[in-house]
Design a protein around this nucleic acid. Structure first.
Length: 531
RNA sequence: GCCCCCGUCGUCCAGCGGCCUAGGAUCCCACCCUUUCAAGGUGGUGACGCCGGUUCGAAUCCGGUCGGGGGUACCA
């Protein structure tokens, strides 16, 4: 990566490490990446594992691996090395929130000392009950937490504290007035403070919550454009407030130096802009979830979708270049991407369209490249079921390479190699019963197999010669070519659906072809009923 | 309930007051090609949620209405 220009944007992608990278998150990551690359900026990858109990090392590794697979390279953040170890790149780390707890604490203490917060001794049960009352109407109004009504009176506070009851820390938000959020995709959005609750910024166990940790890190790491899903739009006002507080009087800078974390670069300013992306929804218009099928990027990988297809398709979920083209290379997307051109309405994830895109991209692949990409789907790397064992022999690779021209234009996903490859990679064919019942019972099937066995015995073994030999058969037998080709197809590939016949025979080799045709003759007789 | 967002073919996008009898992609259908399946080619079905207003003229601007979504956590 070249050195970023002074005005180059710093953007970030900061998922919670669940282990599964949701396609909606990937879309957000992609837009950040495109924006960074378009402007020659910096793309930061941060892991938001404030809830450290749920964030295992494995889930983190899985996230990093998935992001790497999808092809979005990041400039700062954790890196997964070839040997499996996790290292870090970037000057403003750590990039895992679990390693920045001291910072959040230092910030919280300063916020508290400055009077921007108050303690809440209520238990979650009490809060739930209060909210339920507010909602059902027996309370005073909507369930909005404000210091004016929520802060414990001095006496009560002392009593609860004396009881040793733990307390969370809430941020005071203005009682009224308006906050204006300027958003690159939504324009100006106005909120009334009176409808916004005072958020808990520190749990009663003193750990930081998302609003605090996220705001602190965005500023500490010089993020100047926050681009994320629309589900976080309503949470923006309190973040804007926190940003102001953090920057005022060098509060954040002091905290940073207190805990010995890297100081903010002099060029780091406030967050300049927000961009809230429309949701990615299912075909039923509901937030995309497991109910809709695959949602984890890792699953798409296993199904044989190409990372470049996903990048292209996901980019189109809410955005299109000025001329409306759909098939785009990374270079084209980077050159033309513009957050201001992002649409505002939710986009439904359409697997059919993704699949069509994927088929097209597979067809564009260099055959050798496709062969290499197919190997992990056959040797147990991507799929549990496998035909080959890890050190794939050069002979096996040659077969796969020979197979590619026969199957490339009929695949939409890499895992479909399973519908074509087995007959070519195994010694035996398994005859598909439905195909046998459909094809072998037809008049002339046995004769066609016998004649084919005879003629293929002598002809030179190349596509042209094989075709010439077999093309002579229909006239000889007095039937159509289809009646000749289908039985042979079933005999050698096991199925009535296969790659082109002559090419298949050539790839299979004379010995295996003759062997399979010969073995099929009795089966055909039996199917016909004169076994 | 309250707050916020959104509303063009089934789906993704184009459309920024006249070029729109609304265009492309995907899906679906038909035909062509064809040794199966594909691929490819050609053609077709299919949408401006609704009501008012502004205007000579509205998918495009405004208001309302209806519908959908998100949030309303000591999750992120």
């Amino acid at each position: 990566m070249s050195t970023p220009a002074p005005t180059a944007p710093r953007v970030r992608f900061c998922p919670a490490p669940s282990g599964w990278l949701h396609v909606g998150s990937v879309r957000a990551a992609l837009y950040n990446w495109l924006h960074a690359r378009h402007h020659g900026g910096t793309f930061v990858f941060r892991i938001e594992d404030t809830d450290a109990t749920r964030a295992t090392e494995d889930s983190m590794r899985s996230m990093i691996d998935a992001l790497k697979w999808i092809g979005l390279d990041w400039d700062e953040g954790p890196q997964l090395e070839a040997d499996g170890s996790i290292t870090t790149r970037g000057d403003y780390g750590p990039y895992r929130q679990s390693e920045r707890r001291a910072l959040y604490g230092a910030v919280a203490r300063r916020l508290e000392a400055a009077g921007h917060t108050y303690r809440d001794h209520r238990t979650s049960e009490e809060l739930d009950q209060w909210r339920a009352e507010q909602r059902t109407g027996s309370g005073e109004g909507p369930p909005v937490v404000k210091a004016s009504t929520f802060e414990h009176p001095a006496e009560e506070f002392e009593r609860l504290a004396a009881e040793g009851r733990p307390a969370s820390l809430r941020l005071r938000t203005p009682e009224d007035g308006e906050v204006v959020v300027t958003d690159l995709v939504r324009g100006v959005v106005r909120f009334d403070w009176s409808a916004i609750s005072d958020p808990v910024i520190e749990r009663s166990d003193a750990s930081a919550t998302y609003p605090l940790a996220n705001s602190v890190d965005d500023l500490a790491q010089g993020i100047d454009l926050i681009c994320r899903g629309e589900d976080l739009l309503s949470v923006t006002p309190r973040q804007v407030l926190l940003h102001e507080l953090l920057l005022a009087d060098g509060l954040l800078d002091d905290a940073l130096s207190e805990v010995g974390l890297p100081a903010r670069d002099p060029s780091f300013g406030p967050v300049q802009a927000f961009a809230h992306l429309p949701m990615v929804v299912g075909m039923d218009r509901k937030k995309l979830s497991k109910r809709h099928g695959s949602v984890a990027i890792q699953e798409f990988r296993r199904q044989g979708f190409l990372p470049e297809t996903l990048r292209n398709y996901l980019a189109l979920l809410g955005w299109a270049p000025a001329d409306g083209r759909e098939r785009l290379t990374d270079e084209e997307m980077i050159a033309e991407f513009d957050l201001r051109a992002v649409g505002r309405s939710p986009a439904a994830f359409d697997v059919d369209k993704l699949t069509a895109f994927n088929g097209e991209r597979i067809r564009e692949l260099d055959p050798g490249d496709l062969a290499r990409r197919l190997v992990p789907f056959l040797d147990g790397t991507e799929l549990e079921e496998h035909l080959l064992h890890p050190p794939v022999s050069s002979e096996q690779l040659a077969t796969i390479t020979g197979l590619v021209p026969l199957i490339q234009e009929r695949m939409q996903r890499l895992d479909e190699v399973w519908t074509y490859a087995p007959p070519f990679l195994s010694a035996q064919v398994e005859l598909d019963q439905a195909s046998v019942d459909k094809v072998f019972v037809k008049a002339g099937a046995v004769e066609a197999l016998e004649a084919a066995h005879e003629t293929l015995h002598h002809c030179p073994w190349n596509v042209a010669a094989i075709e010439e030999a077999l093309r002579a058969l229909p006239e000889e037998l007095g039937i159509g070519f289809g009646k000749v080709a289908q039985p042979i197809r079933v005999a050698v590939t096991g199925s009535s659906v296969s790659p082109p016949l002559f090419e298949s025979l050539e790839l299979l080799g004379r010995a295996r072809s003759l062997e399979r045709i010969e073995a099929a003759i009795p089966v055909a007789r039996a199917a016909r009923g004169d076994g």
